[in-house]
Write a protein that binds this DNA or RNA. Structure first.
Lengths: 190, 190
DNA sequence: ATTTCCTCTTGACAAAAATCAAGAAATCAC
DNA sequence: GTGATTTCTTGATTTTTGTCAAGAGGAAAT
């Protein structure tokens, strides 16, 4: 199995080898240099990507600051879903934090999957349900935890990220300032 | 068209009248008395419901407090999606804040929709994508706004809710204490 | 009506987090 | 390697939010 077939298989649970081949063949591997953009806000997002290697930062620029919504690591998908699905201008920008490789599918090819693979919509639905549940979890963390607790929770589950990306982005993604983030880290060490 | 058919049509965009009838017939209208539970945490959530009238509070009980995740008003769906889709014990409890009516579908009948209506999975996928986008928006509000700003945003979009439910639940849902909520309200009036 | 319960408000205070400013440390470009 | 830039840390201070406690107001029950 190719790498992309493995992803599709693990995320969408497709068992049929033939379907897997079809879908996999529609994704194209491309590289993005550090600091380059996979998507700039304002443009319509015309592709869906999976991170094969590297790191992508998804952020929204406000008048005051940039808000990092998520950092996609190997295996995560990366797109402005609203823009991709409903053809609206994207609010998200997506930028590579290091040289990265992504498997991307164009909107046209994406639409073709549904035609070619009967079970696709059902499997994709389950995939999005899982994403939905992750977001619910994240909202819960903001409703019920302090910055300190959110830090610990995220750190425990994503240790490897902390020496790969500027910490200010993780801080933003967890809803705190870099200063607060730094002070929390200091406490953890002692 | 019956009320439930109207919902299905507006949320899932089904055009075929026959499909609509089929799906609509699988939902059963039931009533829930004020303070009664549609779902108690720990049980497996075996149905998916749409609010026809009334108000449902979805909350998670922690050791310290109850965290209100969302209040479902007319037209919203209400379920513990993780529990419903993956047959796990639910973390959410769902309780009626006033006498309410819901259209519910059992898990078995829900599964049958996919068989009976070819386009169902695709339409449902789009529905969940819209839910996903709403949650992304909500997370953004926690990453970039103060309690004050979150209050204003929510108030502007949900004025009618404020004289129907205990305000403490709205406070919780917005991630602040009842006291902070009360003080923000006081400032708004002046 | 009055008692009880629940919700909301208010004040005083404590804790958490943001802001501002400066400097250290690390990284990047040449 | 050296200088320039970016990122991180730290301190001082302010703002925001939470906590605790008391009381007011309303709704529901008896």
């Amino acid at each position: 199995m190719t790498e992309i077939e493995l992803y599709i298989n693990s995320y969408f649970g497709i068992v049929d080898a033939n379907d897997l081949k079809i879908i996999g063949s529609l994704f194209k591997l491309t590289t993005i240099k550090k600091n380059d953009f996979l998507l700039k806000n304002g443009k319509c997002c015309d592709k869906l990507s999976f991170v094969q290697s590297g790191l992508l930062r998804m952020f929204i620029a406000t008048d005051k600051k940039e808000v990092t919504q998520w950092i996609s690591t190997k295996g995560y998908f990366s797109t402005d879903l609203a823009s991709f699905v409903f053809d609206t201008p994207s609010r998200l920008s997506i930028q590579a934090l290091v040289d990265s490789e992504v498997y991307s599918i164009s909107k046209e090819d994406y639409k073709r999957i549904g035609v070619l693979v009967t079970k696709w919509h059902e499997l994709e639905k389950l995939f999005i349900v899982r994403c939905f549940i992750m977001l619910e979890e994240r909202i819960f963390s903001h409703l019920s935890m302090t910055a300190d607790e959110r830090y610990k929770l995220f750190f425990d589950n994503n240790k490897e990220l902390f020496n790969q990306v500027p910490l200010q982005y993780i801080a933003s993604m967890l809803g705190m300032t870099p200063e607060t983030f730094s002070r929390i880290r200091k406490k953890q060490v002692l």
